[in-house]
Write a protein that binds this DNA or RNA. Structure first.
Lengths: 390, 390
DNA sequence: CAACTTTGTTTATTATATAGACAAAGTTTT
DNA sequence: AAAACTTTGTCTATATAATAAACAAAGTTG
């Protein structure tokens, strides 16, 4: 069925436009909203009064006069509701409560003893219940639950495959919705991270961005034309399995020479063991390598630089394909920034087609370990605000 | 400035919806349009009567009754205007006139003696003028000019770089608009091909498609969410310069191991010379190799199969990245279909992540040598129809 | 203090979609 | 063949929401 346009749709679209203008420019006056959106002053007034009734917008005191009557400043009421978001990692759960502006108001982290789903699911529901219980009282209460997972996720919230958790075909969204009577959103961890960094990480909204999440493996989230791109079935972005070396190292996906066999945490550790920088039994080997490099261990630094170059190879491919405005590197590897960044930058500068470099920025995730959780909160909040219109 | 929604916008959107429904479902009755679009019968009637006034829609005779009054069938009037589109190749110009349905009504092809812009531009303008002169008389006449070029093209129609033509920084759109007082559209050849194949090549509109144009080099056009993706500056899709072999063959882009050094016409010919299947002076070497393979020359066939495998490597990367519904291989290499397809298919089947294969189709361009020209016609026509609303 | 500015509300007007009545032209049932 | 039903397409009354313009409120400037 096609979408038809009538006066109701017009009103909803304009109301969304007014609300998002207030969110982005808060504090702002009605007159200024009208100027920015191009809507008539009267239209803005009436829409704002509805938003105030819904407690999504508040009036704060008068603002500065610019030579006439002083404006009444409008604020987005981020405390009208709260979201619960969880970053489900390979060996941890990071749960947060955020308000409607994405601000984290409470967090809780725990280690997973075992990646087995039968073990993880009860811990996950317990964590979510604790977060729901702790959420401040508000008009709309907890407006939804978001969970980011290191997995291939279909559009309807089914986990098709999570290689590092050893999960397959799990109806996570459905199962959580049965337990909690709330909207549940499931997304791939890199997609969530990309969205989080776009919404909350950087000031100006980037329309074309590639977010590369590097930890055990490599995942990529793509923001194209300001929207998350998830492909036909929801699992675009398996860039970690891009071939960068023909007949190269075997990968667990069955292919040879995949990017993540050269540029991930796993690749780093394997190579460190081969070169006897680490021994096989070292607990928390990634952290140990970071410490070695920080102490000036030249072998460790060289290894990071080499991995950086491999990251650069895959990034160059992504840049040539997408012509993005910004590339963001996130997850574990942000801790290795000082050693890998020069190598990445050098490779990309020398190997992308010249034009791409003009407007290209390479950054590291600003939200740090919260990229994924924040992104899930953003999904949850945005779906709530869009569904909110009467 | 944001877009605001008022009654004018509503009407335009609905009118576009009605028109595109008629275009896609022609012939169709008013009642059926109302049913498909969800619009009120009265609304459809009034919009259709405007479209009839504008000669974009015609009434044909009565249709079959389904148990009541016989419907009046509506037809899209493809003859209300004509577009002129040119496929500017490395050594040829292919110009076509199409009606508003994309049907080619006249074509003209000529060889380029020299790729130099000073030589090509007069030939191009002469060709376009001839096509304009030959276009049938109609209500709207020639509604625009589209030119597809093997080049990196910016959003404002500037050719930034055309390596195989040796052009740089040419304001092609601007120059043509000065000569002809008509809207001019310039696009990369692969982007145009992708669009042409989506609009006119296949029956069902694919929402996520990757079109790979393989001739001297490799270009890729991407249809994501039903729209052409061109990236921040308009030059996404330089996938030919994706690294598939670390420290591989040097490429003219300055990088090593680029896909097009292994999977293009140039790669094919270079390798054929190295293996002494061809000698260096062979005129039209690609055609010669096709003939050899057709005669059963095993060396030539093996070479095609090897190139097919390399094509498969790059395609696998694209599939893993985009999760498309369809991959289309176009340009010169469609002639080698019978030898390369099995190799491509085998590689892709064995090396893409399992989920992608479920709904994936690999096809060859249906429009053959007209993909690019048809795509440019589609751009031109669609911009005309969108600009047409009063 | 008068004149001007800016903000925000109110009112009359306008454009458009919708529901439903209705006419036209067919098919099906009796 | 007549009556009853169906489907198509137009027309009219109504509702909704955006807009322009008037206006009131509350400031600044000279």
């Amino acid at each position: 069925m096609n979408r038809t346009w009538n006066q109701y749709v017009v009103k909803q679209e304009n109301k969304t436009l007014v609300l998002s203008t207030i969110i982005n420019e808060t504090p702002i006056s009605r007159a200024h909203v009208a100027q920015i959106t191009g809507l008539n002053k009267g239209t803005v007034s009436s829409l704002v009064s509805e938003l105030i009734d819904e407690e999504l917008v508040e009036e704060s005191g008068p603002g500065e006069s610019s030579g006439g009557r002083r404006p009444v400043m409008l604020l987005f009421n981020g405390k009208a509701g709260y979201s619960v978001a969880v970053d489900l990692g390979v060996d941890y759960l990071l749960g947060v409560i955020t308000d409607l502006t994405g601000q984290i108001v409470y967090e809780e982290k725990l280690q997973l003893p075992d990646p087995n789903f039968e073990v993880v699911f009860p811990l996950l529901t317990k964590l979510i219940q604790q977060l729901i219980d702790r959420a401040p009282k508000s008009r709309y209460g907890v407006i939804g639950i978001g969970v980011g997972v290191p997995a291939v996720v279909s559009h309807d919230g089914e986990i098709l495959l999570a290689p590092n958790l050893n999960w397959k075909k799990i109806q996570l969204k459905q199962q959580l919705e049965q337990v909690f009577d709330l909207p549940v959103y499931i997304e791939n961890e890199a997609n969530a991270g990309a969205y989080g960094e776009m919404r909350y990480g950087f000031d100006s909204m980037t329309k074309h961005m590639v977010y590369v999440s590097i930890s055990i493996g490599i995942g990529v989230g793509m923001i194209l034309d300001g929207k998350l791109y998830t492909g036909l079935s929801g699992f675009a972005g398996e860039v970690g399995h891009m071939t960068i070396v023909k007949n190269g190292r075997p990968c667990r996906c069955g292919n040879l020479g995949c990017w993540e066999r050269y540029a991930s945490e796993q690749a780093l550790i394997d190579e460190a063991v081969t070169r006897q920088i680490l021994n096989q039994q070292q607990p928390d080997p990634f952290k140990h390598l970071i410490e070695l490099a920080a102490k000036g261990n030249q072998e460790a630094i060289t290894l990071f630089e080499e991995i950086g170059t491999y990251i650069g190879i895959g990034l160059t491919n992504c840049i040539n394909i997408f012509n993005p405005e910004q590339v963001i590197i996130g997850n574990q590897f942000i801790d290795a920034k000082q050693w890998i960044y020069p190598a990445i930058k050098a490779y990309v500068d020398h190997h992308t087609i010249g034009f791409h470099q003009l407007d290209l920025k390479i950054d590291f995730a600003r939200l740090g370990v919260y990229s994924t959780a924040s992104g899930m909160a953003a999904f949850t909040v945005e779906n709530f605000l869009l569904s909110q219109k009467t």
